[in-house]
Amino acid sequence: MDFLNPRIPLGDWAESFLDWFQDAFAWLLSFVSLVLGGLYNSLESALSAPVYLVMIVILAAIAWFAAGWKLALFTVLGFYLIRALDQWGNSMQTLALVIVAVLFALLISIPLGILAAKSQIVSTVVKPVLDFMQSMPALAYLVPIIVIFGIGPVPGAIATLIFALPPGVRLTELAIRQVDREVVEAGQAFGASPGHILGRIQVPLAMPTIMAGVNQVIMLALSMVVLAGMAGAQGLGGAVTGSISSLNVSLGIESGLAVVIIAVYLDRVTAAFGSRSNLTPAKTA
């Protein structure tokens, strides 16, 4: 290599590794695609099957239970507006994609955050990985995901999962570490097992911060809908991407407004549940 004109073929190495990975783990990639695709299709069918008025009532009931009548009224008006803008089908597809991505992101991030809080070695290893995931442009890892999984909702869900996962890990670790050490020591003094201390003391006391992490995961997942549309995912992301490629201003405004309404709804509902967990006294017995 010429040290005056350096050239490291990192991209070629990455492409070779990607080819090897596809061949060596074809069974795993097929399983992941089957699980994510099946879950997305089932959830999208469940959300789209009822008459839209029924789904609005269900979503409003969740909002009422979480935060009261004001959020329920916003839900009714907001989702009725989505239907009036003819974006109901796209919105349910986007909601299904976000739920799938958030579900798997939380299944990974919360246990990993707890493990990082318990082990300094795990925390030291995980932090640079999370920094890399947050600083890497989403389009950069969208390309290899499309190469591996093709076009459709599966690569969109995986890209969304990767993008949204870091705050869940960070805030879960922070929440567990911030639990009062004296409370933990009191549990140990009474002979509580480590599992009992974690499940009955640390997690309940850390729940408000963990819920803040859940809120951030949901918001980041929803912010990825446009890039998911570039990966061939359906829904509002596909509508926004289509409006950009065809310079369709009306479609871009309508689909963008639908994204905003869904974002506000999910943000208020998760924030309300987080506030409720903050007001609920933790059971340490």
Results as ranks from 00 to 15, higher is better:
Val169Gly: 04
Asp86Ile: 07
Asn90Lys: 14
Ile158Pro: 01
Ile108Phe: 13
Leu115His: 02
Phe149Gly: 02
Leu106Pro: 01
Ile99Met: 07
Ala189Leu: 10
Pro144Leu: 07
Gln178Ala: 10
Phe163Pro: 02
Ile114Phe: 00
Gly195Asp: 11
Val98Phe: 01
Gln93Val: 04
Ile99Val: 07
Ile110Thr: 04
Asp180Trp: 06
Gln87Trp: 02
Ile108Thr: 09
Ile82Gln: 03
Lys127Ile: 11
Ile148Arg: 03
Pro137Ala: 11
Ile197Met: 13
Leu95Gln: 10
Leu161Pro: 03
Gln134Asp: 14
Val129Met: 10
Gln87Leu: 12
Ser119Ile: 11
Leu95His: 06
Arg170Asp: 12
Thr124Pro: 05
Pro128Leu: 11
Val126Cys: 05
Phe104Gln: 01
Ile151Trp: 10
Ser123Asp: 07
Glu185Met: 15
Val184Cys: 12
Gly150Tyr: 07
Leu174Asn: 15
Gln178Asp: 13
Gln134Ala: 11
Leu103Arg: 02
Gly191His: 07
Ser109Trp: 00
Asp86Gly: 10
Ser135Gly: 15
Ile158Thr: 03
Ser91Met: 15
Val147Ala: 09
Tyr141Met: 09
Val122Glu: 06
Pro166Ile: 06
Phe190His: 14
Ile145Lys: 03
Val126His: 04
Phe149Lys: 02
Val143Asp: 03
Ile145Gln: 08
Val100Gln: 02
Val183Cys: 12
Val98Asp: 00
His196Asp: 15
Glu185Gly: 05
Ala138Val: 06
Ala175Val: 05
Pro155His: 10
Leu198Lys: 11
Ala138Leu: 12
Val147Asp: 05
Arg83Lys: 14
Val147Ser: 15
Leu106Trp: 00
Lys118Asn: 14
Ile99Tyr: 00
Asp180Cys: 09
Ile148Pro: 03
Val125Asn: 04
Ile197Glu: 01
Thr172Trp: 01
Ala96Arg: 03
Ile148Glu: 03
Val125Asp: 08
Pro167Met: 06
Leu165Met: 01
Gly113Thr: 08
Gly156Lys: 04
Arg83Gln: 15
Glu173Thr: 08
Ile99Gly: 01
Leu85Ala: 15
Ala159Met: 14
Pro111Ile: 09
Ser109Phe: 00
Ala138Ser: 10
Arg177Gln: 10
Pro155Glu: 05
Ile151Asn: 12
Leu112Ser: 06
Glu173Pro: 06
Ser135Asn: 10
Ala189Asn: 14
Ser193Thr: 08
Val154Ile: 08
Ala186Cys: 13
His196Thr: 12
Pro155Met: 08
Glu173Tyr: 13
Val100Ile: 02
Ala164Val: 02
Thr172Gly: 06
Glu173Lys: 13
Leu174Met: 13
Tyr141Cys: 02
Ile121Val: 06
Leu81Arg: 08
Val147Gly: 05
Leu115Phe: 12
Val154Ser: 00
Thr94Glu: 04
Ile108Cys: 08
